[in-house]
């Protein structure tokens, strides 16, 4: 299990090299979140809670490891200034079978959205605005 919070970009190839190499892994799922230019968005600033962020994500990742038969899981989340096309974050899961890998990756994504202390501020043609949390993001947690 690996969790990283950083302002620097990350390289998928580098991060996935050797990921899930231990154990009898038959499935690897990765998800990457990318900044979109929706609504004329020109840039984004992600704030986080340095003392809490890694701990909160580690707790979510540990829960994923215990609920599914995962051999490994990886979460990287960026903060700071980002522009459309930038990768914001990624999760990867490795398991014997794909069902566990897919489900655990979705679980991680759902929880990162509303339980990891990040806040996005978007800059566009109408100025700057904090992204509001959506009810559906909170509702998504109830399925787990």
């Amino acid at each position: 299990m690996r969790v990283r919070v950083q302002s620097e970009p990350f390289d998928l190839g580098v991060e996935l090299a050797g990921f899930g190499a231990e154990g009898d892994v038959g499935a690897q799922v990765t998800f990457t979140g990318i900044v979109r230019a929706t609504g004329g968005l020109t840039r984004m600033e992600i704030e986080h809670y340095p003392g809490m962020t890694v701990k909160a994500i580690e707790k979510i990742a540990a829960e994923a490891m215990s609920r599914w038969a995962l051999d490994d899981c990886l979460v990287i989340h960026r903060y700071g200034p980002l522009v459309p096309g930038d990768r914001i974050m990624m999760v990867a899961t490795a398991s014997r079978h794909r069902a566990a890998a897919f489900e655990a990756a979705e679980f991680l994504m759902d929880y990162l959205k509303s339980r990891a202390p990040f806040w996005k501020k978007e800059y566009g043609p109408d100025g700057a605005e904090w992204v509001a949390a959506k009810d559906e993001d909170e509702d998504a947690l109830s399925r787990w």
């Binding site: 003392g51 994504m109 990162l112 509303s114 990891a116 202390p117 990040f118 806040w119 509001a132 949390a133």
Partner: peptide, 12 residues
């Protein structure tokens, strides 16, 4: 020792 206030989180 520490209390933090913030809006609902928007990670991911």
């Amino acid at each position: 020792r520490e209390v933090a206030f913030f809006p609902p989180m928007t990670g991911g």
